[in-house]
Nucleic acid binder design. Structure first.
Lengths: 246, 246
DNA sequence: GTTCGAATCAAACGATCGTTTGATCCGCCC
DNA sequence: GGGCGGATCAAACGATCGTTTGATTCGAAC
């Protein structure tokens, strides 16, 4: 009877103020080992299921009932742990993108520490290998599909999602500018645009993409894929400047 | 009272059997000129509105009520003219993809007619310029965003959508193989994969992509974009074979 | 002037969506 | 052993979705 002054709003995920967008990117519970009961494992199972479904389908095409059914959890668990559907998406993204970008920057710094001018191929590998390696692991295969699409898909979710890439972008942009002095800034921008695009379609590993090149690419070998991607993008970046037409 | 034996099912779009997937790709009424009344212009207005909304948002995120409101048409007009939401999507895609692929093949055939071995850059321009040029026209700007995403997005709609590209793919694959004899078929497959990927992110012109390279690329000049794309992909395709590692 | 069919319309259909509610379970600490 | 709070639960909320219905409009054919 008595209205009971809004008892909720104390979930770990977020109350009325949504969780910080600059997420901490820590894996709460890696869904490994056999915890005694269900513990807080529900949160991890929700992330796993949502990761797969968001990648297999779309953000909009994936219903929370699908997610909770796949995660063997209650529908309200999403609201409880993540506040909303978009909170779930942000958590899926933040869980893995942090470590990837951290490894990228650490590898780049190590390269810059050991030599004055870093070879172009080394920069490219530092940028692309962490994500590509994740694509070859069962746990990260779905996530890389999401990352690959973040570059070209519309929607508010994505804008916030790859804002986490900003720091990484700045660091690598300087490195590329040093390694490619023959390119004007505008030209360097175009070429990096294309290079990242090539990486993204490889990460997204789209159903269409695989169909399109069916029989020609052996998508099973991630090592060969990385070698080919580095060779292709390095040559493209090193191409002579086209400057003002012609 | 009397059940009135299902009077509908005679729309031009499709009855119970959906319209032929291998669409004729003819523009029914180019939404230009001032027809007397509303005529069948509604169909074209629906296509225009859906094209923009599907590109700005997503297939799933776009409701038919949004489309019909933007097109100043009745909600039931979609069912009447296209049979269903997916029929509308197919019609949007079929309206423009036919002419693009036709121009691609005609340009390639013209090149092969006038010289024994076609230069790589010429093949690339024949493949990429028709779509890039459409991106610079007001009428086609939204559509190119769709085309760029067809390569990496999941969903049934897309699978059918770029099946229309099959013929074009085969023709250009032969041309590339002739122009790049130093590449094994598997390597050629990878590189074409990346080249098309670079083109797709340029076509999709994603919100994120533009943000990511903000200030570096002047996206306003489509001619410069094409020059840069051709230079980048040509160099990437011509890169030495990496073969078996290293 | 009547008939016919393509085209448009308002209104509703059942289904499913994201979110919220209040109760219930259960391990833990004092 | 009694209370506390995190976690889970069934059930419902209002909104919106794609689709369908049956009536209405309107120009052309006869």
């Amino acid at each position: 009877m008595a209205p009971f002054r809004r008892p909720r709003r104390s979930a770990p995920g977020s109350p009325d103020v949504p969780p910080r967008p600059t997420a901490s990117a820590e894996i709460p519970c890696a869904a490994s080992g056999a915890g005694s009961a269900s513990g807080t494992r529900t949160r991890a199972r929700l992330l796993d299921a949502a990761e797969r479904l968001f990648a297999e389908q779309n953000y909009e095409a994936t219903s929370l009932r699908q997610v909770t059914r796949a995660a063997d959890a209650n529908l309200a668990a999403v609201s409880y742990h993540f506040g909303s559907k978009e909170g779930l998406f942000r958590a899926v993204f933040a869980r893995r993108i942090g470590p990837i970008n951290r490894e990228r920057i650490e590898r780049l710094q190590a390269l810059e520490r050991e030599s004055e001018v870093v070879p172009l191929e080394a920069i490219l590998r530092a940028l692309m290998e962490p994500a590509l390696r994740l694509a070859s692991e069962p746990a990260g295969r779905w996530f890389t599909r999401l990352v690959g699409r973040a570059f070209s898909e519309p929607g508010e979710h994505w804008i916030e999602a790859d804002r986490e890439f900003d720091g990484t972008r700045a660091a690598f942009l300087r490195a590329f500018a040093h390694a490619l002095p023959h390119l004007a800034p505008a030209e360097l921008g175009w070429r990096l645009y294309f290079a990242i695009g090539a990486q993204c379609v490889l990460l997204s590993g789209g159903d269409q993409a695989r169909r399109l090149m069916s029989g020609m690419v052996s998508a099973s070998d991630p090592r060969a894929a990385l070698d080919q991607l580095v060779a292709f993008t390095a040559a493209g970046l090193r191409a002579p400047a086209v400057g003002g037409r012609g």
